[in-house]
Design a protein around this nucleic acid. Structure first.
Lengths: 206, 206
DNA sequence: GTCAAACCGTACCCATCGGTACGGCACTGG
DNA sequence: CCAGTGCCGTACCGATGGGTACGGTTTGAC
């Protein structure tokens, strides 16, 4: 089997896993079910991913890569602070509230008491990989003089808090459908406005 | 058995359930385990709570009552807006990030794909019961002229977003320990400061 | 064309768990 | 002191699922 084909096969298996994860949750997703859905054999699953946790971990890592790629593709250089924040916020919110991320987070939480490793991987490849990137964005815009922050880390957390609110929690509980592009854009816009009110550089101060 | 004794027995069972939930998660908490821990019999569990979901639902409702009681006990009348927000915020954050609430939310999320009812009960008795109370608090303080909000609901969500950030998510993933009183007080204070910067009634405007 | 490795499908083993049944003990109410 | 009821502990049933083994088939390398 060529490497390329093998990669595609691997993707198909991870797709099947994510699908079942979304549909039935982690504990009700059986290895046999994944194998069937991907037209693979259990033996292959165990050969490639060791066990159920390994399969899950691979899915987490792949999802994280996708997220990072999409975020870094956003046009946030050479635009106003407002536009940069809205662009980044919209993209982040879209990913954070998407079916895949929600299913993965839900699963990691459900296993958190028994298997801390999965949550750790999720944090490292997710939030901990994204936050520095966002901090950097804020610093840059501070240097160009549009905003003024004493504590960049706090400012970042505040923007993210204003942006997400409890949407992620409600999505995790499945009491909120996936928001439309329009809803997300609006949300990012409102959060940005509030953030700028907090941190915009006013001219009547030293 | 006197009613009072029976109530205590019921509480003991729910305590045992919550303990195991915290320790092992929902799926790894067995009815036999609960029975053993509470020195009860499985037959009694099924007689009193019908089944595992019923037991969980009872635990959700009891927790929600505790939360409501504690929140409503806070002194938030006749104090400044700042103090009211800090007081309410600290109390809410303490409850939201406490072991019991976290374990319950985690469990409800892990079953969300299969059993929407549990998440519904959690939302109704939790957020949906608390939010109106908080909205009312904000409205009162607006009427006394210290803050000015166009959209109270938005303002409320913004305060809660600033307050909680992603702490709840991180607690659910078990990558963050339960914060100390001091940490929580600080957090409520910072969130309140930001909120007041957004909504404080300034005197130089009509 | 041939051979070996990889993979599919399935059967199997073992453990766990939700839910039910039942025998025995303790406590209550008269 | 005695009947009756509620509860404890445990044994049991059926189903499910993680992980392994294996025969049959496809696929890729030479």
């Amino acid at each position: 089997m060529l490497n390329n084909q093998k990669d595609r096969r691997r993707d198909q298996i991870l797709d099947a896993f994510i699908d079942l994860l979304t549909e039935k949750g982690y504990r009700n997703t059986s290895m046999l079910g994944v194998a069937r859905k991907a037209s693979a054999s259990k033996e292959t699953l165990y050969a490639w991913f060791s066990n159920k946790q390994g399969l899950f971990e691979a899915a987490i890592r792949r999802n994280a890569e996708t997220v990072q790629t999409l975020l870094q593709k956003q046009q946030i250089s050479g635009v106003s602070t407002e536009v940069a924040l809205i662009t980044f916020g919209s993209a982040l919110l879209t990913l954070l509230l998407g079916e895949d991320s929600i299913a993965i987070n839900r699963a990691a939480m459900s296993e958190a008491s028994t298997d801390p490793e999965l949550a750790r991987v999720l944090m490292d490849t997710g939030r901990n990989a994204t936050l520095p990137y966002f901090l950097n964005l804020l610093e840059e815009h501070q240097q160009s003089g549009h905003i003024k922050m004493d504590d960049t880390h706090l400012a970042a957390e505040q923007y993210l808090g204003l942006l997400a609110g409890d949407l992620q929690i409600r999505r995790l509980l499945d009491v909120l459908p996936e928001p439309s592009k329009k809803t997300i854009a609006k949300r990012a816009s409102v959060a940005t406005a509030a953030f700028l009110k907090l941190y915009a550089q006013t001219n009547n101060k030293t």
